[in-house]
Nucleic acid binder design. Structure first.
Lengths: 135, 135
DNA sequence: CCTTGACCTTCCAGTGACTGGAACCCCTAT
DNA sequence: ATAGGGGTTCCAGTCACTGGAAGGTCAAGG
């Protein structure tokens, strides 16, 4: 199968698939014309990667997960460990983002947003000390 | 003032301050020895930038916000507009992250995580169709 | 005066995970 | 023969820094 069809089926742009080959995540064979010739297994792997990426795993995590997937004698504990670490990072990021959101929402709410120059948002940015803790 | 002290006061690494000069966010003068000589105004600007960055504004947003801050005849509506767009992006990102988190938490919960190979996490990744919608 | 160590300078390269674009080749249909 | 829609490689750019090398400067202590 050619890269375009694989892209459609795996849900990844051709560019990304070429990139994944570059970094050794997939190793499709080549046809006589120099085109990449993907097998069903390749497509399956790429779909696996696409799904793992949408769950936010890093490429290196994906590499490991793929290896575990192909290792029939894996321990599920290993997979779970990776997922748990990732989950913890997501939680941390969520916490930070939520904090940002709260502060920002508060500031946006406080700004009247008309043609006058007074602006609580700029005031907050300017005053390193003021209005930082507690919200 | 030298860059190290400014770094301490503004809460930014020296490297970052040099980078900000590179991209034209601050333009400190130079002393006879070639060292950057920062004024109080520079420090204030850098603290402003540091705060804006912790709120997640892009560098380009920061540039605009700084310009607005220094423009006494600004309209607060302009500031508010930038903040609202940014807030919307944060909300979108939060939504995506939360979705990721939910799916991932579900999978982690379902995986027994022992030395056996069976693993719902890998199963999910492998089956593009299954178990995708609804959780 | 010399040295030590902490600071400062510039410049180059790398990060993560792609993405855009140029220049070129190949295949199929008309 | 040609037109189009594939495919190929390679290089550069994204974002906001960050690390490191190679070298200049300054204040304090011996």
């Amino acid at each position: 199968m050619n890269i375009g069809d694989v892209a459609d089926r795996a849900g990844l742009p051709p560019k990304t698939i070429r990139y994944y080959e570059d970094i050794g995540l997939v190793t499709p064979h080549r046809g006589a014309n120099g085109y990449r010739a993907f097998t069903e297994t390749d497509v399956h792997k790429l779909a696996f990667l696409a799904r793992a990426r949408t769950l936010g795993f890093t490429i290196e995590d994906c590499r490991t997960l793929l290896a575990l997937y192909e290792d029939e004698s894996r321990a599920s504990a290993e997979v779970k460990h990776i997922a748990e670490e990732h989950l913890a990072q997501i939680d941390e990021k969520l916490r930070q983002l939520q904090q940002m959101r709260d502060t920002l929402a508060h500031l946006v709410h406080a700004c009247h947003g008309d043609d006058r120059p007074d602006c609580p948002i700029l005031s907050d940015l300017a005053n390193t000390e003021a209005g930082r803790s507690g919200r």
